[in-house]
Every structure is written in C-alpha cells, then in structure tokens.
Design a protein around this nucleic acid. Sequence first.
DNA 1: CCAGTGATTCTCT
DNA 2: GAGAATCACTGGC
Length: 197
Amino acid sequence: MAGAVARRLDAGFFARSALDGARDLIGCVFLLDGVGGRIVETEAYREHDPCCHAFRGRTPRNSTLFGPPGFLYVYFVYGIHFCCTIVCEPEGAAAGVLLRALEPLQGLERMAARRGTSDPRLLCSGPGRLAQALGVGREHDGLTVQEGSASVYPREGAKPRVLATPRIGVGGDERPWRFVDADSRFLSRPLPRALRS
DNA sequence: CCAGTGATTCTCT
DNA sequence: GAGAATCACTGGC
C-alpha cells in the first residue's frame, strides 16, 4: 500500500443490515477532522426495535435516521452527552450503528484536551466519551462520512475476534446486537467473565 | 452504588 | 403550551 491513499468505506457498505454493518465496522477506523481511531465497540439499532430512536416515528430530532445510509446521526442524551450513530440500511429503514468505543490512534493531544485526561483508556471508551474526544456536536448531525471531514476506513491487518453481547443500557432487551473486539483493551466495559479468553 | 443533567416527547388542556 | 416522564451515560462516591 506504499504511497496509496486508503479508500473510504462507501455508501454500499452502509446500505445493508445495521447488524452486518455493526459487526463489520469493528476494526475499521473512524476519523473526524483528523481525530479518531480504530472502532472496537458498536451497537445496532433497527427499525421496529423499541430501543431505536426511530421506533415512534419521525421527529425533528431523529429525522437523519430516516435519510440515506452513510450519514452521521448525532443526538443529545441524559442532558449531558452526545452520541454518534452512522445511518445504515437503505433509505427509509431508519436504522443505524452507534459507535461506542475507539482505540485512539490519531489526534491524541486534541482528545486529551477535550476530555481532560491523557489516559488513553478514558478518551474514547464509551459513546459519550467518544463524542467528546472527537468534538462531536449537534452541528455534525446529518454529515456524510463519504466525503469531507468525517470518514470511515476499512480495517487493515488481521480480522479481529468479534463477539456479540446484549446492548448496554437498554433495560431488559437481551438481543446480542452489541459487537466488540474481544481482544481490545479499550471497551466501554469489560467483557462478561464467561466470554473472556 | 447513584445523582445529575437537559433536550425531546407525551399527555393532557 | 405547560408540566411530567423518559433517556442508546458518566464521574464521583
């Protein structure tokens, strides 16, 4: 690959099931304005899924989810945090992949300044932390990842060992729609004991 | 463990 | 249009 510029993931990658997208994004690299890292934890949210923001229909807040795939859906939760989702599935399906944790690779100083810590394991390990470290805000809602400042690049090297677990914080829904790189030290919480290697 | 934070949406008028 | 309930979490005990 010497001299070659890595090619971004294109719309085709995101125009599939959010479950496949969430699984295959593990190991890919997410960047915003040159800051980001390797995706190690994701969750899928799908149409007809009570946990999905789109479940109760379209509102001004969630309208990006109803648009075409390959765009960022950014929203504010708990009065404190932003979260960053990539819209998946063909337009109208209202599904997406929540980015929950990155292994920081680029722009570490800017992340540390925004987060108030330089501990690499506290920079992007959790959806709110990730958004804060990358400077994600309301203005990024509706931004494409296919060109411009937000981008996703295919993984390089060995395929990570991906495990599926129930999603975090969705009360009682046990569907294994959270995906993690089982060997990453940068997850938002440790793997259940039963799944550790 | 659990308090805090505030936008969004729901449920009445 | 107002008041209440909800919420894909974090940080400090």
